[in-house]
Design a protein around this nucleic acid. Structure first.
Length: 738
RNA sequence: GAGCGAUUAGCUCAGCUGGUAGAGCGCUACAUUGACAUUGUAGAGGUCACAGGUUCAAGUCCUGUAUCGCUCACCA
């Protein structure tokens, strides 16, 4: 038996598998091989020059921080797909990058500076702040890249992209100018979502609603005013220009068209009674005080009523800009002041406690103050001519809107979203979509390429001359992110990469950024290239703890991927994030689960040791005579490989991983290996050799099958296995079995 | 207010196009120092949320109810 061959077994197998001892070396080895880059795979014959391309562009992590479990899950899923397709011989590209995340990064750096130096960005000035943010981003970038490598991600670092690097800058500017020239980008004076804390506008999607207790005040503007109105924000009433009632409301019909002038809390106010069918006669008093400058709804009512006077009475710092007792008060203080005045005047009729949804800014938590502002917008409802289209349902040369284009892409199966139910969520969002506000009053990001001289304005990439001043606003970070699938491939240049790898095969990301990002990529790619940017969208869920709670610092239930890697290895961390995690479902994760997969890595290690020991003396040239049982084992192996392959192709990674796991542990180890022991010890050399052959086949195929899921332990075994049983020096580029 | 999803073993979840229930972890008992104690074998444990319906047959399809969760909208 094998004892006389023990010396042939590398010493490494004599102790349990120790991930720490191998992972960094292996990653360096893979990276140095150059095979993360598909060009090298083609050059060395691993992929055919004509082979089908498979491409994923990595959702670029923000340069604000460090890797969390969500990132780890994303990297695991994408790396599995990529390694599988690379082994299948496809021209496989996984392109890495990082995102400047304008608002998030700038506000983080501002916070640090405020804390450490007690200075605001205005104390530093634009240039100095940008220098600081750049330095922070650079440092953070290094951290993120290092952590990404720890997970075993087989990313092509030679194509690394950063949203603010020169190539991407060029793409963003080109995109802006083209859309402006097509009339899809315009500058407009409208109500925006102003974040007084972040001192910038934000888009509708960056608002989060928080339920809070509020008071609903019912009052009359003056003793002579015939109608009482209700509001939660009495301080805004100094900016009212109308009171809207339902046109059929018998109580108020007679007043429609009348105008009332009075002084409200020291401020002269003129209010016209108007009819608007949007008003609900059942709510409050059935009459709405209309403050056009500080409410989107009211702005629209004023529009419909033809009221043009829209006094702004709150500034960017959420302070009152009127004269009198409210002058320069913060809105919250002014509110109390107005209520006090209403009581003094005997105008307050009732105060009621109600629950109210307050709009807050996602990034800063600041309470949104709607203000009228001159901003840059993307018009989603304007027709333009789509010169070239590969989008199903959209003819080249036809006139479409961005909305139509976004719907067509999904409706006609230009892209399939997984799980499917998110397609409905996507339609729902588009139906409610309004023009997208893309300008931000922050400094870190892509500065809008508009130039001003007096009343003149030009939109172009280069400055028209020294006497022209550039727009100070920057672009919403999702504008540049929307271009990501093709800006990373060299657009606007018609590069080989762009031709080969776009549209990309898969976009894999969290369902929480379906609107922010996925929808905007479809918009941008549709408009600029006439292509749907990806054939498949795989949406993963949120990583939760074992009790299905959100991981949060305050709950103290967070798991740090780097800790898990240090304790249990990257392979175990990856598997724990894959098994039981169907797309679109949240993923429960506990340390026990990670530990369980570390056991599996060790199990595989021991299986390998046993098989390698048992086949060490085999001469593969001799004649092979398989028994019926041998054939059966091989057949089961092939069936399992077929199942696992099919599941990966269908993106059912959670099933593929579990099946491969189950096969290796409970079929191969528990059954095949156990029943082989007497045969290997037996005297019949032909029977013994046949079984050696079978075990070799099972081991090689199992290592390959598990490699996408657990790249490190499988590659470690491979590196210590005899050359005679390998088809490639690196398991990473060995041929996928079938 | 609208839409969507979930409800299956103590816990976390599979169960795809319908044929009388599965995995992992946990639990119990036993075994095991020649691949592996990061092990093996065996076992207990479920009226598949509830009520109807379609069907020869329903966790699996349809309708309704309840509870939980998510997303979107937001009315002063």
């Amino acid at each position: 038996m094998a004892e006389n061959n023990q010396p042939n077994i590398p010493e490494v197998f004599l102790s349990p598998y120790n991930p720490e001892a191998h992972e960094d070396t292996l990653y360096a080895m893979w990276n140095d091989s150059g095979y993360f880059n598909p060009d090298n795979c083609v050059k060395d014959g691993i992929a055919d020059p004509e082979a089908e391309p498979f491409s994923i562009v990595l959702p670029p992590p923000n340069v604000t921080g460090t890797l969390h479990m969500g990132h780890a899950a994303m990297l695991a899923i994408e790396d599995i797909l990529v390694r599988y397709h690379r082994m299948k011989g496809h021209r496989t590209l996984w392109l890495p990058g990082t995102d400047s995340a304008a608002i998030a990064t700038q506000s983080k750096v501002e916070k640090i500076i405020q804390k450490e130096e007690k200075k605001s960005r205005h104390d530093l000035g634009r240039e100095e702040l940008l220098r600081r943010v750049d330095a922070f981003a650079e440092e953070s970038k290094e951290t993120i890249i290092g952590q990404t490598e720890k997970m075993g991600s087989s990313l092509d670092w030679s194509r690394y992209a950063f949203t603010l690097d020169e190539q991407r800058y060029h793409a963003v500017m080109t995109a802006f100018v083209n859309m402006f020239n097509d009339g899809l980008i315009y500058r407009g004076d409208r109500i925006v979502n102003w974040d007084p804390k972040g001192q910038t506008t934000i888009s509708d999607d960056e608002i989060v609603y928080e339920e809070r207790q509020a008071k609903l005040y019912t009052f009359k503007y003056s003793q002579d005013f015939p109608i009482a109105v209700a509001t939660t924000r009495p301080e805004t009433k100094v900016g009212d220009t109308a009171v809207a009632v339902h046109p059929d409301d018998e109580r108020y019909k007679k007043y429609i068209g009348q105008t009332f002038d009075f002084t409200f809390c020291d401020v002269p106010v003129s209010v016209q009674i108007v009819a608007d069918s949007e008003v609900d006669p059942e709510f409050g008093t059935g009459a709405v005080g209309v403050t056009p400058a500080h409410s989107k709804t009211d702005w629209d009512i004023a529009d419909r009523a033809g009221i043009t006077r829209r006094p702004q009475i709150i500034n960017e710092y959420a302070k009152m800009t009127v004269e009198g007792r409210l002058n320069n008060l913060k809105t919250t203080v002014a509110r109390e002041e107005v209520v006090k005045w209403l009581e003094e005047e005997g105008l307050l009729k009732s105060v009621e406690d109600i629950k109210q949804n307050v709009s807050t800014a996602e990034r800063t938590g600041g309470i949104i103050e709607p203000l009228p502002k001159l901003q840059w917008w993307i018009n989603v409802n304007k027709k333009f001519t789509q010169k070239h289209s590969e989008i199903p349902g959209i003819e080249s040369g036809s006139d479409v809107t961005l909305k139509e284009l976004m719907i067509a892409a999904v409706e006609n199966d230009g892209v399939s979203i997984l799980p499917e139910r998110f397609e409905r969520v996507y339609y729902n969002w588009i139906t409610n979509l309004n023009d997208w506000c893309i300008s931000r009053q922050i400094w870190y990001g892509h500065r809008i390429p508009a130039w001003y001289k007096g009343d003149e304005m030009k939109v172009q990439i280069e400055s028209p001359g020294d006497d022209w001043e550039q727009e100070s606003d920057t672009l919403d970070t999702w504008f540049s992110s929307g271009l990501w699938t093709f800006s990373t491939l060299g657009w606007p240049e018609q590069t080989d990469d762009l031709k080969t790898y776009h549209p990309t095969t898969v976009l894999e990301t969290g369902y929480d950024i379906l609107f922010f990002w996925v929808a905007r990529m479809i918009l941008m790619s549709g408009y600029h290239l006439g292509q749907v940017p990806f054939k498949n969208v795989y949406l993963h869920g949120l990583v939760r703890d074992s009790q299905n709670r959100k991981m949060s610092k305050s709950l103290g239930n967070t798991l740090d991927p780097l800790d898990m890697i240090a304790k249990y290895g990257a392979d175990a961390t990856r598997l724990s994030l894959i098994v039981g995690a169907a797309p679109g479902n949240d993923m429960p994760l506990s340390e026990d689960k990670v530990r369980a997969y570390k056991k599996f890595a060790n199990k595989l290690w021991n299986i390998s040791r046993f098989v390698l020991t048992s086949i060490a003396d085999a001469d593969w040239e001799q004649e092979l005579q398989l028994s019926e049982r041998d054939e059966e084992i091989l057949k089961e192996l092939r069936m399992k490989i077929a199942e696992v392959s099919e599941d990966i192709e269908k993106f059912s990674l959670y099933l593929a991983a579990e099946k491969a796991y189950h096969y290796v542990w409970h079929d191969l180890a528990d059954k095949v290996l156990e029943e082989s022991k007497p045969i290997l010890n037996g005297a019949d050399t032909a029977v013994r050799f046949a079984r050696q052959y079978v075990l070799k086949e099972c081991l090689v195929a199992s290592l390959k099958m598990l490699h996408p899921f657990m790249p490190f332990v499988t590659e470690t075994v491979w590196q210590h296995a005899p050359e005679a049983i390998k088809d490639q020096k690196l398991l990473m580029v060995a041929k996928w079995p079938n």
